[in-house]
């Protein structure tokens, strides 16, 4: 469904991604692991159109995404939940959600809003509250709900567990598992390699902007190097 083919992209004079090729099939959860600076976030930003593709191509279904604006990419059915949540602090929970479905007609927005409140009951309770007053975990739920608002076929998730309490991390991953059931594909960037590999079908490991390793989650979990470097394994 998603194909990132030999993509080069970066900031200013620097190429961060150097000929990265990854793919994702419908219904899959694919994890992208790697150290800080490996290019994980850059990969997501390139897919969403926040950064230009310099070489190579990004295709979704039979649509080429190269050169599209983030607004157009969202219309194609891809949503992006950024690292650090980026909730609008002074807007209400409801406005935060509605803005995530900006291009959607009002009648459909209402239905999506109800669906989100059904899935995240805490957000229904807080709907008139300013986004900045929510706790970290609640903000992450809001960020996830914003990602789901436009009814995407593919969600890009950047570090959804970063800075959360262990219990809340559990809730986040449970939600992701639940989303898979409902048919949303997920491209997941995570520091928490252990949990990601438990959840994901397949994974890629990025090292300095290149795919160093790829395989099913099971294969990678059993790989000695992965154990050493990302799973905190002991000899």
């Amino acid at each position: 469904m998603l194909r990132v083919d030999q993509v080069v992209s970066g900031y200013g004079p620097i190429d961060v991604l150097k000929h990265v090729t990854i793919s994702l099939d419908k219904g899959e959860i694919v994890a992208v692991l790697g150290a800080n600076g490996a290019g994980k976030t850059t990969l997501l930003r390139t897919i969403t159109g926040l950064i230009r593709v310099r070489k190579g191509s990004v295709t979704f279904g039979d649509k080429v995404l190269n050169g599209l604006s983030p607004a157009e990419v969202v219309k194609c059915g891809i949503s992006h939940v950024p690292e650090g949540r980026h909730i609008f602090p002074d807007l209400t929970v409801e406005d935060n959600l509605l803005l995530a479905a900006y291009a959607m007609p009002r009648s459909q927005q209402k239905g999506r809003l109800d669906a989100m409140y059904a899935m995240f009951t805490i957000l229904a309770e807080r709907r008139k509250q300013a986004g900045g007053t929510l706790s970290g975990g609640e903000q992450q739920m809001l960020a996830l709900a914003r990602g789901l608002m436009p009814n995407p076929r593919l969600m890009l998730l950047d570090e959804p567990s970063l800075g959360l309490a262990p219990k809340t991390i559990g809730t986040v991953f449970d939600t992701l598992a639940h989303l898979r059931e409902s048919g949303v594909s997920i491209l997941l960037v995570e520091q928490n390699a252990k949990r990601s590999l438990e959840l994901a079908d397949r994974a890629y490991i990025l090292v300095t902007g290149q795919v160093a390793l790829e395989g099913t989650a099971r294969e990678l979990s059993g790989n000695e190097m992965v154990k050493q470097l990302y799973l905190g394994g002991t000899r």
């Binding site: 969403t48 926040l50 604006s69 983030p70 607004a71 990419v73 969202v74 219309k75 949503s79 992006h80 950024p82 980026h86 909730i87 609008f88 602090p89 002074d90 807007l91 803005l99 995530a100 900006y102 291009a103 914003r146 436009p150």
Partner: peptide
């Protein structure tokens, strides 16, 4: 005005 990056990420034109 609150978070320009987030607005772009969410697909606001």
């Amino acid at each position: 005005s609150q978070d320009e990056y987030a607005a772009r990420v969410l697909g606001i034109p």
